[in-house]
Amino acid sequence: MLRLPRFEFRVAGSASEAVAILAGEGPGTRLVAGGTDLWPNMKRRHQSARTVVSLMSIPELQGIVGNGGGEGELRIGATTCLADVAASATVRERYPALARAVDAISSPPLRNMGTLGGNLCLDTRCTYYNQTEEWRRSIDYCMKEAGSVCWVAPSSPRCWAHSASDSAPMLAALGGRVKLVSAAGERVLPVAELFANDGIDYLEKAADELLTEVLLPPESDSRHSKSSFWKLRRRGSIDFAVLSVAAWVRTDAAGVVEEARIYLGAVASAPLAATSAAAALLGEPLGEESIAEAARRARKAATPMDNTDFQVQWRGRMVELYTAAALREIAGLDPGVRAPRHLTVLSS
């Protein structure tokens, strides 16, 4: 049986207590919420901690708060479990693509444990890295942990582990923000700015900062503002994304696209802002041609690496098809590719 190494386990009763422990203990301290990312990583010995601080007994980090069913900002506590996010009537109604994205994370029991904050902070992944200590010893480790080479791109100076969070690209596309709290104070950051495109230093969150909540914009999905999420993975459950496409488009009364955001998951070390692709949609109604152009641009922007499932060149091609599918769904067109079994029907 794979087992955890020893560590000191502390349970924080409040956010301020958690950040105080972080400030006091310094490096070697890690936060844990659902444990679905940290515990496997520690069992495989590619993450370690002297002290682990549980956030699961902090009431203020839990739950979904919004002003009723109408407009206004929706706040989701960082340790709200993924199953509750996906099941929330408010989320399903106002941000159906977010419900779909969260519903597509891993498997049902994992979503009963894993949290939204945890999924945002999910460690980057790579088949050279998410392996046991013994396995990694047999490749002399890698740049991300204990080694010096990135085996995905051996001449590269950086680590190419990929971002595998499904909620991150979706929240970024929706224009969500996160609140970070530390002993020194707090700040609110767009989700898109929470990440850095580096397999090792993939979070802009400082080590002493605690992600306390996710803030969703006041604007819900509506006739003029629509979102979609498409995820590609091998199986109908359990698997991480090998590609995800999150898109959000706002049109004016005449149907002309005013604003659009497209974020790609699993093709970079951070949710990848396909800005040029989104720009291709602006100023005209969402239609076949602009979508095709946006999809081509998205493919150009993506850099899938050979460090997860499926053949890498094929994954690159899927970026174009899945980007088109997500946008076509928003436009009310046939998606052009067969929808994977695990995608829930968007209610709006």
């Binding site: 049986m1 659902g34 679905t36 496997p40 495989r44 199953a83 029991p109 994992l110 444990m113 359990i238």
Partner: peptide, 22 residues
């Protein structure tokens, strides 16, 4: 023991969770 198979599922407060990751 890594949350990948569901074999160790038990109920905690009525919810199905993986006992290997709790």
């Amino acid at each position: 023991e890594l949350g990948e198979c569901g074999t160790c599922t038990v109920l905690v407060d009525g919810r199905a969770v993986l006992s290997c990751l709790m």
